[in-house]
C-alpha cells in the first residue's frame, strides 16, 4: 500500500509562489483563499542568521486529528496513498476539523464545506505530479511513495537531513523539509 509524501528542498525554494498560483488554478480555489502558502522563517542572531523558505500545505498526517474529530466521516483517509480528503456532501461545516488542525491548513469554502490540499489526488491517480510540484521552477518539490524504497522521496530522505513541522503535535506529518 502506498504512502504518499512530499519532500521540499528548502535550500532551493525561493518563495516565488508559483506553487500557490498553480494550486489555485488547478483546483479552482475561491478568490481570497489558498490551500498552500509560503512561510519564511528567520532564526539566529546576526551575523549567523538563517533563512528558511517553506511551501506549506496540509501535512496529510498519518494520524490526522481532523479525521478523528469529524462527526460525520466527511474527513477521511483515502484508500490510495493515505491522502486526507474531505467528502463535500458529508461535511456539515461544524469546523471541528479546522479547530483540530495544528497547522491551520483547512478553511471553510464559500460553499460551506471544509476545504484543503488534496495532494491533487485527481492528477496523482492519473500518474501525474500534484500541480504545485509540476510547476516549481527550482525543482525543489518532490512527490512520491514513502513505502517504495526506490522512490525519489524515499531516497532523498535517506540521503539528506530534514525536518517536519510540529512533530511534537503527534500527528505524523507527511511533508518533509530538506535542510
Amino acid at each position: 500500500m502506498a504512502r504518499y509524501a512530499m519532500v521540499i528542498d528548502t535550500t532551493k525554494c525561493v518563495g516565488c509562489q508559483d506553487c500557490v498560483i498553480a494550486c489555485e488554478t488547478e483546483n479552482n480555489v475561491p478568490e481570497g483563499y489558498c490551500r498552500d502558502w509560503i512561510t519564511t522563517a528567520t532564526s539566529g542572531k546576526f551575523p549567523t542568521v538563517q533563512l528558511e523558505i517553506r511551501s506549506e500545505r496540509c501535512n496529510h498526517c498519518s494520524e490526522p486529528p481532523c479525521v478523528t474529530s469529524c462527526p460525520t466521516g466527511a474527513s477521511h483517509i483515502h484508500d490510495v496513498g493515505g491522502v486526507v480528503l474531505v467528502n463535500h456532501d458529508e461535511c456539515i461545516g461544524c469546523k471541528a476539523c479546522l479547530a483540530s488542525c495544528p497547522y491551520d491548513a483547512r478553511f471553510i469554502h464559500p460553499d460551506g464545506y471544509a476545504d484543503k490540499c488534496t495532494f491533487c489526488i485527481h492528477r496523482v491517480e492519473k500518474g501525474e505530479d500534484p500541480a504545485c510540484v509540476s510547476v516549481c521552477p527550482t525543482h525543489c518539490m518532490h512527490f512520491g511513495d514513502l513505502d517504495d524504497p526506490e522512490s525519489e522521496v524515499s531516497k532523498l530522505l535517506k540521503e539528506r537531513k530534514y525536518h517536519t513541522n510540529l512533530p511534537e503535535a503527534g500527528t505524523g506529518p507527511n511533508i518533509y523539509y530538506l535542510i
Binding site: C34, W37, I38, T39, T40, L98, D104
Partner: peptide
Amino acid sequence: MLELTTTRHNELIDPFFHAWG
C-alpha cells in the same frame, strides 16, 4: 525565530484561528 506566513489570508483562520463565534 521570526516566522512570517505570506499569501495565506483564509477567512476564520488568519491572522489567528477564530472559526467559532
